[in-house]
């Protein structure tokens, strides 16, 4: 245990030293003080990143669930739609999806609200990944459990409330958190639409103060401040709650 702590401290320390080394070796002196009067702007961007990511998470859970139902549907067109849509999205870079949505698809429908279109782009992009985790979560309940529910005579509502949903939630949580992390990282691309999330807020500060290294390092650390606790929590959740 003590060894483990020591090893992790050393690894984290090494990265810290590396960052400090990089910061101190810039062409212009590293002055974190340049950020001072832009704290509010950057914190605002930080929270907007969390906000849009959360909206995209909830939105894509809904659309992902609909897509999952389509994939499971008896209707052949729905299944075909799912296949085609999934392939198209898998083949598209997120940046391209966001730009297409904001500059091409939106205007075709007379909509020019770029941040909203950007978030829609993000939702559309994450949808098939969400559908996937729903699929694997429901599939992980083996057929024999359904047969057992049949034999005992559980009603449909009882099945969902007492047996299916409690299991599916536990299976769903870790990949859902991973997807949330993907969304947070992906949301940085919304800066191309001039939406004031974390990336764009930092760019504003940089263009005014020329504090490039200061800005990028701060931004990087702020992303990590969200995503690493998230992945640690996911691991904790898996250890504590997962069902084999």
């Amino acid at each position: 245990m003590r060894n483990k702590t020591l090893n992790y401290s050393a690894a984290i320390g090494l990265f810290a030293v590396f960052i400090i080394f990089v910061a101190l070796n810039q062409a212009t002196p590293f002055q974190i003080g340049r950020l001072e009067s832009y704290g509010g702007l950057i914190i605002g961007g930080f929270f907007r990143t969390i906000l849009v990511s959360f909206i995209a998470l909830v939105g894509s859970m809904i659309t992902g669930f609909i897509l999952f139902l389509m994939a499971k549907s008896k209707n052949g067109f729905f299944r075909a739609f799912n296949d085609v849509f999934t392939e198209i999205i898998y083949g598209t870079p997120l940046l391209v999806a966001i730009i297409m949505m904001a500059f091409v698809v939106g205007p075709a429908f007379n909509t020019y609200n770029r941040p909203v279109l950007g978030v829609i782009g993000l939702i559309v992009y994450i949808t098939p990944y969400m559908a996937n985790i729903f699929r694997s979560a429901f599939k992980s309940i083996p057929e024999e459990q359904y047969l057992a529910m049949d034999i005992f005579g559980f009603t449909n509502v009882q099945r969902y409330i007492y047996i299916i949903i409690p299991q599916v939630i536990r299976i769903l949580m870790p990949p859902l958190m991973n997807n949330f992390s993907l969304i947070i990282k992906g949301s940085a691309l919304l800066n191309v639409l001039a939406y004031r999330e974390l990336f764009y807020s930092v760019s504003i500060m940089q263009s005014r103060t020329f504090g490039y290294a200061e800005g990028y390092i701060t931004m990087w650390i702020l992303y990590i401040v969200i995503t690493i606790p998230l992945s640690q929590f996911t691991r904790y959740f898996e250890r504590r709650w997962s069902l084999q």
Binding site: A148, I151, F152, F154, Y162, I163, Q167
Partner: peptide, 25 residues
Amino acid sequence: MVFQTHSLFPHLTLKENITLVLEKT
């Protein structure tokens, strides 16, 4: 009915697997 694999509901204890069936069905 008993199947090839145990088919217990994995989120419930052994005892809850029994009481759930008795109470609900």
